[in-house]
Simulated assay, not measured.
Amino acid sequence: MFTSYIAIGDSFTEGVGDELPDGRTRGWADFVALGLAQAATANGDAGSVRYANLAIRGRKLGPLIAEQLPPAVDQRPELISLNGGGNDIMRPRVSIEAVAQQLVDAARTVTDAGIHLLLLSGANPSLHLPMGSLMRRRGNELDAAVRVHLPLDDVTYVDNWADERLWDIRYWSQDRLHLNPLGHARVASNVLTAFGVPVPAEWGVEEVAAGPASATSRRTADYYRRYVLPWVGRRLTGRSSGDGRTAKIAELTVVDPTAMPPL
């Protein structure tokens, strides 16, 4: 089991959509760190798991890798997770093959450093978004383009894009682009399961999955005003939701297995 873990990525990995009462984001990577810490404690190794999260929302894959991968590798964790490309495939033009190759090249950089890589796809929001069919097609193409290169030594791949449970609106925040706390917990359960680490029962992942699916809600004028128009405005002006932001946990820090707020 891994005792040091650094997450790099964009809003998906930062935890956008899972905001705590004090304004901090939590998200699936925090849940994974918690699951690792709780498993270590159960094995008599309390306080042995350290975690950092360098992810910043809005980052396209090239800047993400350039900014976040070197400091992550320099800290020499046992595990690095990488998700990216979601912001690339929402642009008017994108080379899917180039995005996939960037992910594979980054994976090799990590494994060549003797670090295990968790490579994971984001969840699929396309059923709930304007022009969702385009995003779905590109996401499917990216998923397939990455899989061509797998398996890779010392790389664990978790395919959240293909997790049909995550398509349900119950797992999505009000902007329909980012997961809510339940969605982030499900992604974390996918990751922990891939590593053979128990998923804490108090997360309620299985109970939620067993419940009936929700109907897709309508997109209202208020939805477009609050979420779509600001996104378009940032694209037109060359701004990003991550401008001026820094990593929420820049250095490896001991995880307290009892400190995570409940869902």
Rank of each mutant, 00 (worst) to 15 (best):
Y5P: 01
Y5A: 03
Y5V: 02
I6F: 08
A7D: 02
I8S: 03
I8Q: 02
I8V: 03
G9I: 11
D10Y: 02
S11L: 10
S11R: 07
T13R: 13
T13G: 11
E19R: 15
L20I: 00
P21Q: 03
P21D: 01
G23I: 00
R26H: 14
R26Q: 13
G27L: 05
G27K: 02
W28L: 02
A29K: 10
D30C: 10
D30T: 01
F31Y: 15
V32R: 02
A33L: 00
A33R: 00
L34H: 04
G35W: 12
A37Q: 00
Q38M: 10
A39E: 14
T41A: 15
S48P: 08
A52F: 10
A52K: 09
N53A: 08
A55E: 13
R59P: 00
K60E: 11
Q68D: 03
Q68H: 02
P70W: 04
P70N: 05
P71D: 05
P71I: 06
V73F: 09
V73D: 07
D74H: 11
D74N: 10
R76M: 13
L79P: 13
L79D: 13
I80C: 09
L82T: 03
R91H: 01
R93E: 13
E97K: 14
Q101K: 15
Q102N: 13
Q102W: 05
L103C: 12
V104N: 09
V104T: 14
T111W: 02
G114L: 04
L117S: 06
L117V: 09
L117M: 09
S121P: 08
G122T: 12
P125D: 04
P125V: 10
S126L: 07
H128G: 04
P130S: 06
S133A: 10
R137I: 02
R138P: 11
N140I: 13
E141S: 15
L150I: 07
V155R: 02
T156M: 07
Y157S: 06
W161F: 11
W161S: 06
D163E: 14
D163W: 12
E164K: 13
W167C: 03
D168E: 03
R170H: 11
R170A: 12
W172D: 01
W172E: 02
R176C: 02
H178Q: 02
L179C: 00
P181R: 00
P181I: 00
L182H: 06
R186V: 15
R186Q: 15
R186T: 15
R186H: 15
A188M: 13
N190K: 14
N190F: 11
N190R: 15
L192M: 15
A194Q: 11
A194M: 08
F195L: 13
F195A: 06
G196F: 08
V197M: 03
P198W: 04
V199E: 03
A201V: 07
E202A: 09
W203H: 01
G204W: 11
E206G: 06
E206Q: 14
E207G: 06
V208W: 09
V208H: 12
A209F: 07
G211E: 15
P212K: 12
A215D: 13
A215W: 08
T216I: 06
S217V: 13
A221R: 14
D222I: 12
D222K: 11
Y224N: 09
V232G: 10
V232D: 09
G233T: 01
R234E: 11
L236G: 06
G238A: 06
S240L: 07
S241I: 11
I249N: 07
A250H: 12
E251P: 06
V254P: 04
V255L: 05
P257D: 00
A259G: 03
M260L: 03
